[in-house]
């Protein structure tokens, strides 16, 4: 197969084509969709999802799932916000360490339950989804951390820009994606995650330390949810016990699955996930522009997930067929 053919057959190409076609279709009705400003709007919708999606990708590749990310985001953002409120003299940069640290801890709890008790991750994280959300209410006494307590510099990260009018948090999201790419593709541990996910039985025979790797992916997912937590405070300027991070897991899992990460483990690419996140951002930005009421959004998201699944299936089939043909 020639190089062009290989590129065309890749999942990422398919998503990129979908994004372009979608953008062109929308711009037929609303030319203002293809402006620099609308790019800014789309990008501003994505950083939290993109960061958490990187963690979720690694978890899915390792043949697990993490449903608790929204609650980990909420709890770490809440504790960080309360620190800003109750200890105003603390340097705001420390908030990142606190939020990521809490997230890591929560992720490790998930990982420990999954590995040491040999429990299915979907149920463990369904449990901690409730548990962490409940703790968020309890520690905060069900009170919101208001805008005035979030440091101005932190809020500024979502508004001031180092380059091209694109705010800092978007650069941070891309930096996290790049780091994840390096980690997943070019480190031994990163490759082990893929080995574990594609064949959990053979992996230990090949020297993969299953316990450590599983703990690590959940810790990373927690750490990135924690990072997304403090960025929530930056982006929206408040932390609310019930809204912050609520339903976040659905957005992230949808974006990751659209991005071609297989729910059966072992398959996934950072570029694909980034494109998946961008496609979701485009849809979210285009619907209000087109005047499509919010009532239709949920149905459209559901349809997009199902279509992505179908595409995934047909691509995999073609891949297998081609593989067989090449061997014959």
């Amino acid at each position: 197969m020639n190089a062009l053919g290989r590129i065309l057959a890749r999942r990422e190409t398919g998503i990129a084509v979908m994004i372009v076609l979608f953008a062109l279709a929308v711009s037929l009705y609303k030319p203002q969709f293809l402006t620099l400003n609308s790019l800014r709007v789309i990008l501003l919708l994505t950083p939290l999802v993109m960061i958490a999606a990187m963690g979720q990708m690694l978890v899915l590749v390792a043949r697990h799932v993490d449903l608790s990310i929204g609650s980990m985001l909420g709890l770490s953002a809440m504790l960080t916000g309360m620190m800003f409120r109750d200890l105003p003299e603390i340097p705001w940069g420390l908030g990142f360490a606190v939020s990521i640290g809490i997230g890591t801890l929560l992720g490790l709890v998930n990982g420990a339950l999954v590995t040491f008790f040999r429990l299915p991750s979907i149920i463990v994280t369904l449990g901690t989804l409730n548990l962490y959300r409940g703790l968020t209410f309890i520690v905060s006494n069900a009170r919101q951390v208001d805008r005035q307590f979030i440091p101005a510099d932190l809020k500024g990260m979502s508004q001031t820009s180092p380059l091209l009018g694109i705010p800092w948090i978007i650069f941070m999201a891309f930096a996290v994606a790049l780091l994840t790419y390096w980690f997943a593709m070019h480190t031994r541990v990163g490759r082990q995650i893929f080995a574990l996910g594609s064949n959990p039985i053979a992996a230990p025979l090949r020297g993969v330390k299953v316990t450590q790797v599983t703990l690590l992916v959940f810790a990373i997912s927690g750490a990135l949810s924690g990072l997304a937590g403090i960025m929530y405070a930056s982006r929206w300027g408040f932390v609310n016990p019930s809204n912050t991070g609520f339903g976040f897991e659905f957005q992230v899992i949808a974006a990751v699955v659209i991005g071609g990460v297989s729910i059966n483990g072992g398959v996934g690419s950072v570029l694909g996930v980034m494109l998946g996140v961008l496609l979701m951002g485009c849809v979210a930005a285009a619907l209000p522009l087109l005047g499509i009421p919010g009532t239709a959004q949920s149905a459209i998201y559901g349809a997009v997930i199902l279509v992505a699944l179908l595409i995934d299936r047909s691509v995999r089939r073609q891949g297998i067929a081609r593989f067989k043909a090449a061997r014959a």
Binding site: K30, Q32, F33, T35, N37, S38, V41, L45, W236, N243, A284, A285, L287, P288, L289, P293, G294
Partner: peptide, 21 residues
């Protein structure tokens, strides 16, 4: 007249769309 469903994300998208349209 647009509706943000009392969610910060959705309200923000609707507001951005208002200013673009």
């Amino acid at each position: 007249t647009v509706y943000g469903d009392d969610q910060p994300e959705k309200s923000t998208s609707e507001m951005e769309a208002l200013m673009a349209n």
